[in-house]
Design a protein around this nucleic acid. Structure first.
Lengths: 338, 338
DNA sequence: CTGAAAGCGCTTACAG
DNA sequence: CTGAAAGCGCTTACAG
């Protein structure tokens, strides 16, 4: 089963490759006729043979000649992380409908890796890139923007970057809503367990927590784990919080959340009676196991959809913009009324 | 910042594009010298300028001319499913190290979608494909194999397919181990909640459950939910099982597992006192929340790694084989001794 | 309404 | 040790 080329079709039909190419690239008009100046009968013969031979144009040749690649790149810190893979799934879904294929890459929060992936994607001639940036990736992203490849940032911002689109959850609002909720339920001693990671979305969540606490006249307190030591340090912090009589914990990232819940239960304490907890970012099991856990949804579906649509607009020459997705909270057992 | 081409470099150096291409494609020998017949000095000048100009060869032109695409395709039912995205992550990681990029697609268990994705990936000239097949995708996969594109099946088998590689968890052994474990812990009335889905891995798990039960002289019983009605039917089955005095449930897929756990808790019953449960496939929260849930790991990391290595061998002309990954079980609270 | 020809950016016999 | 030329499979002015 040899690969069929344009030339094969042309030869077999006794016409030029030009003609075949034009027929195959013609769009159907509303009335069903072809939008090109080729004789109707000839055109039909071309179409019929292409179908019969299962002709599939080479994307390489197309891309090389016309610059149209029909290829998108998506880079996240880790595709096996639910929030990222869910966004990826929506992006892939929409892209496929428009005839785009999508290449995925995981940066593992490494700027070196990020730079490599961006280079490789650019080499492949992607028409656009959707990326969750990591620390220090300003330069490599600037290089991509300079190559006129449209870029949409998701999940986290890199404020100094110019000429890119942005789609984020509204992290300031989400954390305010969390504190509001805990306050309404009667909690006052509310602490946060965060981590030392220079990522703006995390900073936003911390700052919003602090400001909302202050607005209620409460005292904010944040524990900072080293990113490499999260598993070991979180239980220690939870222990300290218990000692201090803390009533509720807020955890602004999924890994901190899972560790904190485990630590509370390992201490033989009950959620929420001994310690309430509100998690930022969701896990599929939060609504399934017992107790159910209150969380802020990442709304990855919306992030994916909006990012794709923005990228598509940018590919069509429109400028990028900024979209803030309104947060959705799930209120579970873990923050029941005190 | 215009894209730099081979021709640009050649012109600037006053040499032919042939020469530049040869230098750039030469491998370093152990002693550090270049494996080509170009004058050392000239070669160094080429290398230096390529670096200075940040020359990046066009993958399109390379692929078109030489047939080397450095592109892999991965298709799973749903990249946002943890087991699939984790395997994907390992594949991408290894592929990246070898200079391959990887395109992802979700079939959503639809054979139409699968066929489209396979066609598009083939159009893009992927060097190989790793795929979790869905029902009825024999024909479209056969087409790919006929095009001499290496294919590795993961997670599920399509036994009639010839000439492909295979990497699966040993589903027969895993389910035997589950029943063994429950038996040792004193459980006798053990039922399974499965679903009507024509997927061989699921059939294997069901059959292995049945046979192992019979080998102990116990009576197997399997509830079958319609795939489209899982969320609604599982709670009904759980209710029936409780009525019948069933002691332990086995759930052979993650969605059945989460639904079953939820249903047991919603009935106000306690795990494992009122009902034990052993789940096939893992969720990150199974070891975190309380009670911890016994599960069979999908070992997606191993699946991804082995599949990639097999694909690579096949790309190098070796035949595909079959790898069965030995199962790992986690024993949690949910199957504590009766 | 149709076709000859150039060209996208590379690689690869072939020749010297 | 180096280069002129063909060609991968398409698209696109240009000409008729």
């Amino acid at each position: 089963m040899e690969k069929v080329t344009l030339k094969d079709l042309a030869r077999e039909l006794g016409v030029s490759t030009t003609l075949v190419s034009r027929v195959l690239n013609a769009r159907r008009r509303e009335d069903g006729s072809l939008d090109c100046d080729i004789g109707k009968e000839t055109a039909e013969r071309v179409l019929a043979l292409a179908k019969e031979r299962d002709y599939r144009p080479s994307r390489f040749a197309m891309g090389l000649r016309s610059g149209k690649r029909f290829l998108l790149g998506v880079i996240t810190p880790d595709i096996s992380n639910y929030a990222f893979s869910e966004a990826g799934r929506y992006i892939e879904e929409l892209a496929h409908q428009d005839g785009y294929s999508v290449m995925f890459g995981s940066s593992s929060e490494s700027e070196t890796r990020m730079a490599e992936l961006l280079d490789v994607f650019a080499d492949h001639g992607v028409d656009g890139i959707i990326v969750t940036p990591c620390m220090g990736s300003e330069d490599s992203l600037t290089k991509i923007v300079a190559k006129k490849i449209p870029v949409v940032l998701i999940n986290r911002d890199l404020p100094s970057l110019k000429g890119v689109g942005r789609v984020f959850l509204d992290n300031i609002l989400s954390m305010k809503m969390v504190v509001d909720h805990l306050y309404e339920r009667g909690y006052r001693k509310i602490e946060m367990i965060s981590e030392n990671m220079n990522v703006l979305s995390l900073r936003d969540r911390e700052n919003s927590y602090t400001e909302t606490m202050l607005s209620y006249g409460l005292t904010p307190y944040i524990y900072y784990a080293e990113s490499s030591e999260v598993d070991a340090q979180v239980p220690v912090f939870v222990g300290e919080a218990v000692q201090k009589g803390t009533e509720a914990l807020i955890t602004p990232r999924i890994r901190l959340s899972l560790n904190s819940i485990r630590a509370i239960l390992d201490l033989g304490m009950s959620i929420p009676r001994d310690m309430a907890i509100f998690c930022h970012d969701e896990s599929p099991a939060f609504t399934t196991l017992s107790p159910t856990i209150s969380y802020v949804s990442q709304r990855s579906d919306q992030v994916g959809i909006q990012a794709y649509q923005m990228l598509k607009r940018m590919i069509n020459g429109e400028p990028g913009g900024k979209v803030l997705i309104p947060p959705h909270l799930f209120f579970g057992d873990s923050t029941e009324k005190k």
